[in-house]
């Protein structure tokens, strides 16, 4: 009974949001496939969103998770996709500039930098401050997205912590913390969340001002604009947002 109510509610939401076409009722979507190109950091959240979307509409969601810039390259190369979700606005801009998207991209999630420390925070780290003195801090190198975000944050805060290592990827930073080699690492909030009990996240005061925005858009080459729209509406709607929050993403 509950399921039926939920499905009906979803149908109403979908019908309401996809007003121009008005065709994405569950019955119509059943058996169809929507192909979504999404940034690698969305893997956990989007897989769950895809399952929920599929359960409600009967549509199958097929994902291609990769780095945002690699996805843009694939779209440029003519890879078939209905929806593109980027981890940053610069890569979405590359896609819109190349006329690969249709309609204006919508921001659907945000991510901020946070400190990942050993479980329970035994070193009593409180932020990018004096609590890091004598501690081993690992960060992303300047040039890679997380390192660039940190550079902006450091400038905003007027601090210059001395890391013992500047890693290539967020995963490498997280690995140094989970293996116990480093006392603290600067990662995205979602990375700290995905590490579960292996790390404790310590919010960096001021980090909310350096926000990484995630935009989503239908592609220009989509063969089913209504279904693509329905998927995007699901992601930006309350259910999609709840799942994104669960995975550590912030609201746009």
């Amino acid at each position: 009974m509950k399921k039926l109510v939920a499905a009906l509610a979803a149908a109403l939401v979908l019908a309401g949001c996809s007003a121009p076409a008005g065709t994405s009722s569950p019955a119509v979507a059943s058996g169809k496939t929507v192909t979504v190109f999404a940034a690698a950091s969305l893997k956990g959240a989007f897989t769950k969103i895809g399952d929920a979307f599929g359960a409600e509409t009967g549509a199958k969601v097929s994902y291609n998770f990769n780095g945002s810039s690699a996805l843009v390259d694939q779209l440029k190369g003519g890879a078939p996709a209905d929806v593109f979700a980027s981890a940053d606005e610069s890569n979405m801009k590359k896609a819109t500039d190349a006329a690969l998207t249709s309609g204006k991209p919508t921001l659907f999630a945000t991510n901020v930098l946070t400190l990942a420390v050993a479980p329970g925070n035994p070193a009593k780290i409180t932020g990018l401050d004096a609590s890091l003195d004598g501690k081993k801090l690992v960060v992303c190198a300047v040039g890679v997205p997380c390192g660039n975000a940190l550079a902006t944050l450091e400038k905003n805060l007027g601090v210059s912590p001395k890391p013992v290592s500047q890693e290539q990827t967020v995963t490498d930073v997280l690995g140094k913390v989970t293996s116990g080699e480093a006392d603290a690492g600067v990662v995205y909030a979602t990375d700290a969340k995905s590490a579960g009990a292996k790390v404790t996240a310590v919010a960096i005061p001021g980090s909310e001002k350096v926000v990484n925005n995630y935009p989503i858009a239908a592609t220009a080459s989509t063969k089913d604009a209504a279904l693509a729209r329905a998927y995007i509406d699901y992601v930006t709607g309350p259910k999609g947002q709840a799942i994104l929050t669960e995975f550590g993403f912030g609201k746009p």
Partner: peptide
């Protein structure tokens, strides 16, 4: 790790 002048060797520098 990888830190310029301390642990960042040629292969590390190339990778970055």
């Amino acid at each position: 790790g990888s830190l310029q002048g301390v642990t960042q060797t040629l292969p590390q520098a190339i990778y970055l």
